[in-house]
Amino acid sequence: MNPERLLSLTNRWFSTSVGLTLVIFLSSAICGFLLLPYADADSRFSGIWDAICNAAGFPVKSSATDIIQPEFKISGATLGLAELTSPSPQSIGRGATLAQQCAICHGPEGVSRADAPNLAGQYAQVIYKQLHDFRSGARTNATMGPFAAHMNDRDMIDLAAYYAYLPRIPSSRDSAEVPLIVASGAPTRGIAPCGSCHGTIERKIGSPWLNGQPAAYIEAQLRYFASGARRNDTNQQMRNIARALTDDEIKAVASYYAGTQ
């Protein structure tokens, strides 16, 4: 048999099989792009092309009207800056000069003697975020607000680089005595272990290193998060946890991280 005869419409086998394939193709297209999308009672298509494009998976930008905007400032700091992960020596040097104005509370080497947070060895993203939030008003504090108000982004990046560069204070506590709430959280109350974000097990960018922080400071911040007085944690990630903590747990966490337990 010659090949031209085989692939010609006069060949009954050829025309039937091509015809059948076309019928299957068309009916599955109608089923998939029109019948099934419209069978969904909750589909809200503006027309036939809308239904086809949606079934084909063309992405649409999410839009919703009547959004309830917050009446407070939301933390808008961008933590992905490359300068925060690999700072230049100039940046660290400039940060050291700027840090002189912080030494009264945070200590000349970033270790406080006044229950202010210890900044030595803190993650650069954390320092940057908090300074940014103090300036924007997402976090309020009578002392820090005025300081941050006069800083530009460069100052904040340099300060973050300097404090991240300083050595952390060595831990003095006995690792055998980790409170249950720190070691394993309380999964039945929706509390993950502290270290799953704060760096000892895993680190979530923007979460501070807690070891060696003053107990009074940690306790106060947990209470602010629980009451909603502090809300510069993105999407309530810390408020959700702090609300679920008991009074005793807040105290245990604070004294554990302070190393006073």
């Binding site: 919703a64 917050p70 939301i74 933390s75």
Partner: peptide, 12 residues
């Protein structure tokens, strides 16, 4: 940017 604006800001 979901926490900054749009339908997923925390108050919405």
């Amino acid at each position: 940017k979901i926490h900054l604006s749009g339908e997923f800001v925390e108050t919405n």
